[in-house]
């Protein structure tokens, strides 16, 4: 089974648009996973039906039983996260500030504090308009476990691919270079880097390449909006060459890019044949790099 993960380091480079186009072009041959759980957008282009919904529980959060609380505030004294306040003679715990360390429940002389599983988000299994299946998620506000939710989404996608006998998984990876992107990369067979010619994007690209290299995963790169700054595009190309990363595609700045997103279509479906042509060619290159023949 091949797992192709699209990442970018910096946000806003066109990562999701590229990944959604790959999903469309692969059609029924690929299972799709949206691992950008913090700002999931792929669903806007692929019309998932959210047929199966699951809760994502992660870690714990402390709650006070008012019936037993005597308001001694021992819990407030030991909490390092300022999560406990007093109101009406009882301790109250702010679930946003609580990190679930459980210290308060251990020191409470009345055993009035329990630790309950924290609802950190939701994840879904959907049919999408290509006739294939997509696994996606929504992280709860202020939750800190996107890495684990990413792992859940990927595992479910793998399970479904196995059940349905699919040989390909396309993943919209997490942005940045932190824990969620590490989860996105785990088990990947190929990484597509989407970047743009700006100093900040180049800076982040260098860091994600370093990270991907640690996992020994082969990579290819797409430079989006390459004509915005040809000088930096040249710098990126030099960096890629020296890092031995093939350039899969260069895409010029094109207003049609945004128009197709606004119309809820992937850029592979754009009426602008230049744009849809470039992304199709890019996908062909990805397939070639991975020795995959896809029957659509």
């Amino acid at each position: 089974m091949k797992e192709i993960v699209v990442i970018s380091g910096k946000g806003g480079t066109g990562k999701t648009s590229v990944a959604a186009s790959f999903a469309l072009l692969a059609g029924k041959s690929a299972i799709v996973a949206d691992c950008d759980v913090d700002a999931a957008d792929m669903h806007l282009l692929l019309s998932p039906d959210r047929a199966e919904r699951h809760k994502f529980l992660s870690g714990t959060v402390a709650v006070v039983d008012n019936g037993s609380c005597t308001g001694c505030m021992e819990c407030q004294a030991i909490c390092r996260f300022d999560a406990v306040t007093e109101k009406g003679g009882f301790a109250i715990i702010d679930p946003v500030k609580c990190e679930g360390c459980g210290y308060c429940s251990r020191v409470c002389p009345e055993n009035a504090i329990s630790n309950i599983p924290d609802l950190a988000g939701k994840w879904y299994i959907s049919s999408i308009r290509t006739g294939s299946t997509m696994v996606h998620a929504k992280l709860g506000i202020g939750a800190d476990n996107s890495g684990k939710l990413v792992a859940r989404v990927k595992n479910e996608a793998r399970k479904i691919a196995e059940e349905q006998g699919k040989e390909l998984i396309i993943v919209d990876g997490s942005p940045g270079i932190g824990c969620p992107v590490i989860s996105s990369l785990s088990g990947a067979s190929y990484v597509v880097l989407v970047t743009e010619p700006s100093l900040s994007a180049l800076h982040d690209l260098i860091r994600v390449v370093e990270l991907t290299r640690n996992f020994s995963i082969p990579m290819g790169a797409v430079i989006n909006k390459y004509d915005i700054n040809r000088e930096i595009t040249a710098q990126i190309e030099v960096f890629l060459r020296e890092a031995n990363i093939p350039l899969l595609s260069r895409m010029e700045w094109n207003e049609e890019f945004v128009h197709s997103i606004v119309a809820g279509r992937t850029i592979a479906e754009s009426e602008n044949t230049t744009l849809s042509g470039v992304i199709r060619e890019c996908w062909e290159n990805v397939l070639q790099q991975n020795d995959i023949t896809v029957k659509v």
């Binding site: 700002a39 806007l44 946003v96 992280l139 202020g142 939750a143 996107s146 945004v258 997103i261």
Partner: peptide, 26 residues
């Protein structure tokens, strides 16, 4: 960026928040 813990921490420290967005479905 995003809506996880680090963002909550920064927003929590502020008196006023300016949200920057783009006019696209994303």
């Amino acid at each position: 960026p995003g809506s996880s813990c680090p963002v909550m921490e920064v927003v929590g420290q502020s008196d006023f928040v300016i949200l920057v967005t783009e006019p696209t479905p994303f």
